[in-house]
Design a binder for these strands. Structure first.
Lengths: 214, 214
DNA sequence: GTAACGCTGTTACGCTTTTCACAATCAGTA
DNA sequence: TACTGATTGTGAAAAGCGTAACAGCGTTAC
């Protein structure tokens, strides 16, 4: 129903609101928050229509209240468990990146086929052998997974994950995954991203190119 | 002129074509290639209009020729140099990820403020001290940069990079950068991406959500 | 040789997303 | 109280993007 672009921006707004809250700011105008987010005030107000929190015309939005409203809209009440598959260079970086205790999203398990990594605890997360994936996920109720394995193994991992009940996949492998249509896949293709930047940042031509929304 | 979505897909097509080439496939139909890329044949043909290579009606596209045409369209003839700023967990992972010798894009230098990392060679790339950035870039003609520093330092890094002549930035820091409009910035916000996946993959509602293009 | 078929290039259409614009609303002020 | 000024919520226009449809062309079969 609500567009994924809007969801992404809401997530960003919330993070910015948390920063403001930490600075002791009480209220904020759409213009200010939108500028921080790299968007326009109109777009922010339209995004906020979805969450159902209304600001007051002359005082803007109450920072804490708006953050709470976005939380209520985005987060699942009991929180969601996340598993990571592939503990290579990238996987380790992602573990440390996502290790920050987020109230709603927590990485509960990592998987790797390398026996040297198994049973080690990396950035606070236990690493299990790859073939125990379905078994370990039976205990957890993980709905979200991150794939950080080489391209060749990604499709198989995705299938195992969906069989284990995973509903959303963040895929870093440079492959388009074929999954059931009720599983949401977000691809982060860093090579493509770099080539895009290289193209628009190329030396001579393509001068005045406005930055598109992320 | 040409949309960034199209550029991203062209980059993806090229990679797929290279795979096909490696498998000895000579020609390919728009339908096949589009399926591999997770798109439709019509979209692929439309994207290919930009590069100016025409397939033959009944034989599809010559794999090698099409790959060359996309290369001519995307790449800068002499190649482009890339620098990476921030050699933490993520930065190291990116170095190993991008270390694959790509003909056109090569990471020529890394920067970090940690003196213990300086002058070390990581994944084949020398690490320089942060404050030598403008000096080192004076020698190189790097037009592309990757930012993998913590959020607090990203804006300053971006400014130093643009002063040094960088035209495109791939930004992994969870901050929206304020840069001159003729510098292209692509944000990869992994936290937002994960929250998006969590939202659409949440257990109960939001069932039939089609995967959007990456 | 000719007809039928299949795939491409391109134009036109429709949908999604963003932007614009304005009525409604509230604080401050005299 | 009545008025000004600033900001929000939202309907309507605009833009961007993807999809569908079709004409053109080369190939193949007979």
């Amino acid at each position: 129903m609500v567009s994924d672009k809007t969801i992404a921006r809401l997530s960003l707004y919330r993070r910015l609101l948390k920063v403001l809250e930490g600075e002791g700011v009480r209220s904020v105008f759409s213009q200010q928050l939108a500028t921080m987010a790299g968007g326009t005030a109109a777009q922010l107000r339209r995004d906020l229509m979805e969450v159902g929190y209304s600001g007051t015309p002359n005082n803007g939005y109450e920072v804490a209240r708006l953050a709470d409203s976005i939380r209520d809209f985005l987060d699942v009440p009991g929180g969601q468990s996340v598993v990571l598959v592939g503990v290579g260079n990238l996987g380790k970086a992602l573990l440390s990146y996502f290790a920050t205790r987020r109230s709603s999203l927590q990485v509960v398990a990592a998987f790797d086929s390398d026996p040297y990594k198994v049973n080690r605890v990396i950035h606070g997360c236990r690493c299990y052998p790859m073939d125990s994936l379905s078994e370990v996920l039976k205990g957890q109720t993980a709905t979200v997974a991150v794939i950080a394995v080489p391209a060749a193994g990604a499709q198989g991992v995705a299938e195992a994950l969906t069989r284990a009940g995973v509903r959303g996949i963040l895929n870093f492998a440079p492959v388009r995954l074929r999954v059931s249509p009720n599983v949401y896949v977000e691809d982060i293709d860093m090579t493509v991203a770099l080539e895009k930047v290289a193209y628009f940042g190329r030396p001579i031509a393509g001068r005045t190119r406005k930055e598109p929304p992320a």
